[in-house]
Design a protein around this nucleic acid. Structure first.
Length: 452
RNA sequence: GACCCUAUCGUCUAGUGGUUAGGACACUGCCCUUUCACGGCAGGUGCCCGGGUUCAAGUCCCGGUAGGGUCGCCA
């Protein structure tokens, strides 16, 4: 029998990083087994539901590259979907739930009380076979001892999570339920429901949760809890995917950076760890840099552009060639995409903006002595016919020799004049990219601010 | 409160009875570099506690402790 797995998020307006990991593990298992990955939107809570909230999930999954074989094509519940088991929005499956609840009612396995329909839960412990955790014998809690039955249809006529979840898995032919461990205890209810419908329950695999670095539960407000923060932060999605794979699962031979296709080939349920993992932003950042360094320049530019635009830089005023050349000088330097602003914004501004350190150093930097040296250097640059990193370096070194000073005395003011900061890309390379016109203009602007 | 899951450096992990307990991130020092980085080299830190089984326990069993989860007309 072919594997069919599903990711069934509730559209709450954001995609939790743990949810993204659950989606990833389902996707990996489907791809590993040649099975089918289904996306189903659990929007029974109509009060909180919106198309925008669904779009956030679809966008996030697409960004990660987790394509689904069946499911909605857009965030619109009324919109088209792909697959033979639709609709893929629970809000559109009312008739199915109605039919199924009547089935239980007629079998005497459910009953009405105060307008709601309650399922007659078994009173004995339930054995939960789990591919990851192992066999779990779930005893009744003290509250359940008092009243083990639970509501499956509310008094307002709306079905409840446990019920729709099971009915959909049943109707959609789901063979493996891979979900967060927070559902492990609830699985007893689900298994009982499957039995009530007279069908075998799917196989279960409960994966450990992702916690904050301090071990607390990662909730909506926590830093990095939303996948969107990585999308907006200019992360390489392939790095995020790679990092997520390593939370609770690991390839052999101590490998860290592993191509997705190799992970797909190796991935399997039994090797998944059983304890929760803490989300280590440091390691994700390191991995992200590794991906930055090894990706093509074009890919890097694609990831950097939105961040630069977001910062208000008029990127459309610059040629693709110039942008490529400029970003090439920082590609190996950024630790996080927002760094690109600090390192490269000067390429894309008409007027140099000086950072705090540069401003603070002005009393030492803007001197008559320095003015004389910078004027000499300016002249040397002006007569440099090729204006390449090599020629500029030679010109600067030669000027320093003529002046009888260390090169640093020329390097520093040039960097400040052209970039507004003491830190940035290799000086000679950035000068080459900036070009003669901009470099001379920026040196002139600084000279004008220096005392005679 | 009851029930369930879990427990190796600060973090992610390798480890399935015999290892000097390995790797990665982070951290510290040095080298390289007249910016910041990169890179190279070196270094420290760990089997939650207590019993038991065994010639031998990080590894198996029991208890405790700690963390997480669930018990809803939320999902």
């Amino acid at each position: 029998m072919s594997v069919r797995v599903r990711f069934a998020p509730s559209p709450t307006g954001y995609l939790h990083i743990g949810g993204a990991r659950t989606a990833l593990f389902n996707w990996l298992y489907a791809r590993h087994t040649g099975g089918t990955f289904v996306l189903r939107i659990e929007d029974t809570d109509t009060a909180r539901n919106s198309q925008e909230a669904v779009d956030v999930i679809l966008d996030g999954l697409r960004w990660l590259g987790l394509n689904w074989d069946e499911g909605p094509l857009s965030g619109a519940a009324e919109g088209p979907g792909i697959g033979q088991h639709g609709p893929y929005f629970q809000s559109k499956r009312g008739a199915i739930y109605q039919k199924r609840v009547e089935e239980l009612l007629s079998k005497g396995l459910a009953y009405e009380r105060e307008g709601a329909v309650r399922f007659k839960m078994q009173r004995e412990p339930v054995l939960i076979p789990d591919l990851i955790v192992g066999d779990v014998k779930r005893e009744l809690t003290d509250r359940e001892e008092l009243d083990p039955d639970f509501v499956i249809f509310r008094s307002d006529g709306q079905p409840v999570f446990h019920f729709v979840n099971v009915v959909d898995d049943l109707e959609m032919g789901i063979t493996h339920v891979i979900r967060g461990e927070d559902h492990l205890s609830n699985t007893a209810k689900h298994i009982a429901l499957f039995q009530a419908f007279g069908v075998p329950a799917p196989k279960y695999g409960h994966i450990p949760l992702i916690l904050n670095i301090d071990g607390t539960k990662m909730s909506k407000r926590d830093q990095g809890a939303s996948l969107k923060s990585y999308q907006d932060g200019g992360y390489a999605p392939e790095a995020v995917v790679n990092y997520l794979c390593l939370l609770g699962w690991s390839p052999k031979e101590n490998r860290e950076i592993v191509p997705l296709d190799e992970i797909v080939a190796m991935f399997d349920l039994p090797q998944i760890l059983r304890h929760n993992a803490r989300f280590d932003m440091n390691k994700l950042n390191w991995m992200n840099v590794e991906y930055f360094k090894s990706m093509t320049l074009d890919r890097f530019v694609t990831l950097a552009l939105p961040v630069l635009r977001q910062a208000g830089l008029a990127m459309d005023n610059y040629s693709p060639e110039y942008i490529r050349a400029a970003l090439a000088t920082v590609k190996e330097k950024v630790k996080q995409m927002p760094d690109v602003l600090q390192f490269a914004a000067f390429y894309f501004r008409d007027t140099v903006v000086f950072d705090d350190a540069a401003k603070a150093a002005e009393p030492q930097d803007l001197t008559a002595e320095s003015r004389g040296r910078v004027e000499k250097l300016r002249a040397a640059f002006a007569s440099d016919s090729v204006f390449t990193a090599d020629s500029l370096q030679a010109a600067l070194k030669a000027t320093a020799t003529t002046l009888g000073v260390k090169a640093g005395l020329l390097v520093h003011p040039t960097r400040i004049a052209c970039t507004g900061s003491g830190i940035g890309p290799s000086l000679y390379h950035l000068l080459e990219v900036l070009g003669r016109e901009r470099v001379l203009a920026r040196l002139d602007a600084m000279i004008a601010r220096m005392p005679v």
